[in-house]
Design a protein around this nucleic acid. Structure first.
Lengths: 233, 233
DNA sequence: GTAATGAAAACTGTCAACAGATAGGCGCCA
DNA sequence: TGGCGCCTATCTGTTGACAGTTTTCATTAC
């Protein structure tokens, strides 16, 4: 259950012998993939990596097998491992799964809501409104990410949290990822307010619905953006 | 994206060189774990396994790292890999995730329902009713499994399908698994009928709700069974 | 100029061996 | 007799090497 979101600056792997070389390598490879330093589609050369990290190929192979199970890379026999490339269809499928998980998180959170958390979430949405008015996407994006993370982190289900993060991370493998990020800052934040109200009411059904719909609408925006982009090609 | 459900009788690993030794070992280990031949909590000895399968330890280590990422085993540094043991809390968390995924599958299926599929699903529910009346759990269980699988398999989202199977499989690691299987055959099948009606109506919201609730109620039955069992101890 | 061919280079799959860590048993001592 | 520490057996972590496959590239024929 590795929740991969903090890309801690542990580039020097030599220090972390305490947590096994394989898992350190796995984290580092995951970081390289998610930051885009290893682009979707490229092959991962075991020998190059073993030279780069000063290890033998064994631990690297173990790490890549782990990443394969997580869906970040693809292993082709006798040809090597490739950073997974997500098609539009893959991305759309992931949005459905993410919507389901996020809706469930909303439901669970509504049933265990605290005043402090509600205040914090409200503050975040207010801040996003301010930023959205300026149209500053660079500021909006991390706030938005933090808002969603706080909801899922606070829902009380660690399994759900891990899965949610896994799929959000996986979306980084979608080449046209930039498409979905733009557009509709204010619109998106209106949906956030609806979620807030549902959470405050303590109504699980309603919270699940608003949270589900938020991701479903994001999916619709993605599809529209992809279609528009394709038409412009 | 390995959908693991068919435990094909490929006990002889020597034949399947075409799909790589590691993945064949992984499938076999997964089978041993899910069937309970390797019980939750036991340690997996690399040397014994390599002798048993006639390979070296390398491929076995790769296979176990993959299983670790899937959540079936736990790796402790310098001590080995252990078949994962699920607590009641873990099982309950998984039910929440499963409910979310199954609800989403219901929604997707409602929006792409065909007459043929509806007829097949109806036939299955009728058969379950007949079996439930006889109180034959051994006959009910596989029918029930097939009913759920058909719904998720037909929803058109392969990512969702793979995830759903992963979590259903994971529940095999729950030691008190027998607790949830018993009780409420007729009750459960009444919920199936509600799901059928929602699917037939083509109403996505309603289908999601009925499918979600079906798993949520199963979760509640599990909790009740566990509580009752604990009180009897 | 292009396509087919064959050899060599590069890379992955697998294995066997060594180094370090852990666990269990034995003897020593209070 | 019970507890402590040492020692050995067992097992995992990692490495380097060999075998087989894929890819690359130069050569040759058309």
């Amino acid at each position: 259950m590795s929740i991969i979101s903090d890309s801690a600056p542990l580039s020097d792997l030599s220090v972390v012998k305490s947590v096994s070389l394989t898992s350190a390598l796995e984290k580092e490879l995951e970081r390289l993939i998610l930051t885009g330093e290893l682009e979707p589609g490229v092959r991962i050369n075991e020998i190059h990596l073993s030279n780069r990290f000063g290890t033998s190929r064994g631990p690297i192979r173990e790490a890549t097998r782990s990443l394969e199970a997580k869906g970040l890379v693809e292993v082709v026999r006798n040809r090597g491992v490739f950073v997974r490339r997500l098609s539009v269809e893959d991305a759309v499928e992931i949005y459905d799964v993410r919507a389901a998980l996020f809706g469930q998180a909303g439901r669970l959170l509504a049933e265990r809501m605290t005043d402090g958390l509600l205040a914090e979430l409200t503050r975040m949405v207010d801040e996003m409104d301010a930023v959205a008015e300026r149209g500053s996407f660079d500021e909006y994006y991390p706030l938005n990410l933090g808002f969603h993370n706080l909801i899922v982190s606070s829902c009380g289900n660690r399994t759900l949290l891990a899965e949610y993060h896994r799929f959000v991370n996986k979306l980084h493998l979608f080449r046209a990822r930039a498409l979905v990020q733009g557009g509709g800052l204010a619109v998106s934040n209106r949906e956030h307010r609806a979620m807030l109200e549902a959470l405050a009411s303590g109504d699980g059904d309603r919270a699940q619905m608003t949270h589900w719909r938020h991701v479903a609408l994001a999916k619709r925006r993605l599809i529209a953006a992809v279609d528009g982009h394709a038409r412009n090609d």
